[in-house]
Simulated assay, not measured.
Amino acid sequence: MTKPPRGTYVIVNRVLSPTDERLAITFNGPEQPLTVNTRTDFSNQRWIVQDYDQNTKSLVPVDATALQVAWGADCATVLPAHNYVWTIRETDSGYTIQDGGVTVFWGVANAVNNATVTIGTGTGDEKQRWFFERVL
């Protein structure tokens, strides 16, 4: 199973919006839920993937490198860095992003602009699959 190597990425949901737009995870500020929004080249959709250990990674917004993606109330949020880790695994239909204990998945309830990135039980739905697009 491959994992994305360390680097900077735009993370795009596997499912297109109803208007066929690619939806990328977007940083909305500290302590704010992550959302998916129409993919742009803006820095708020760029994420630094860092190795934590051989099994897990941390995700850091390019716009706020002292923060990390953390588990909020049923959603992904961004908090001051504190060793928040995620397991990223490749599948036939894209990557899954799960907590370090591999018990829950990132996803979206609906693949629409400004949908919250949820954290919950695995459903096998493609809305819980992601593409990691490397950027410079």
Rank of each mutant, 00 (worst) to 15 (best):
N55T: 05
S93V: 13
N83A: 01
P30R: 14
A70T: 13
D53W: 00
I97D: 00
I119Q: 06
R129D: 00
F105K: 00
A109W: 02
V10F: 00
N44S: 12
A73V: 06
G94W: 02
R14S: 09
Q50Y: 01
G100Y: 04
C75E: 14
A70N: 09
V102H: 07
T77G: 00
R22F: 07
L23Q: 01
W86H: 11
S58A: 09
K127E: 13
I48C: 14
E126P: 01
T40S: 12
Y9L: 08
V112G: 00
V49D: 00
P33E: 03
L67Y: 10
I119P: 15
G100L: 05
V69K: 11
A64D: 10
T77A: 07
W86M: 04
I11K: 04
R46D: 15
R89H: 01
I97L: 02
N110F: 12
R89L: 05
V78H: 03
T26N: 12
V12W: 01
A109N: 07
A70V: 08
M1L: 05
T38H: 08
T38G: 10
A73C: 14
Y84D: 05
E90N: 05
T56C: 03
Y9C: 09
T65P: 14
T96K: 13
K127T: 15
I88W: 01
S58H: 11
A111K: 00
G100S: 12
S43K: 05
D92Y: 11
G29H: 11
T65R: 03
Y84R: 07
Q98A: 15
G7K: 07
N44C: 10
A73E: 12
G100M: 02
S58C: 12
T96E: 06
S58Y: 08
R89S: 14
T2Y: 12
N37V: 07
V78E: 06
S93I: 06
L136I: 14
P30C: 12
N28L: 15
A70S: 09
L79T: 08
P18Y: 05
A111W: 10
R89D: 07
V102I: 13
A73S: 03
Q128A: 06
W130E: 03
F105S: 14
D125W: 11
L79M: 02
V49W: 03
T118A: 05
L136Y: 13
G107N: 07
A115W: 04
Q128T: 04
L23C: 10
E90Y: 09
D41S: 10
A64N: 08
W106A: 10
T96F: 08
A24Q: 11
T116V: 15
V62A: 13
F42E: 09
W47Q: 05
Q98P: 00
A76F: 12
T96C: 08
T87K: 15
N83F: 04
P18D: 10
Y84P: 00
W130S: 01
T87S: 14
G72K: 03
D53H: 01
T121L: 07
E21D: 12
G122W: 02
P30M: 14
P61G: 02
G122C: 04
G100R: 10
V104A: 12
F132R: 01
S93Q: 09
A111Q: 09
Q68M: 09
G107A: 04
T8W: 13
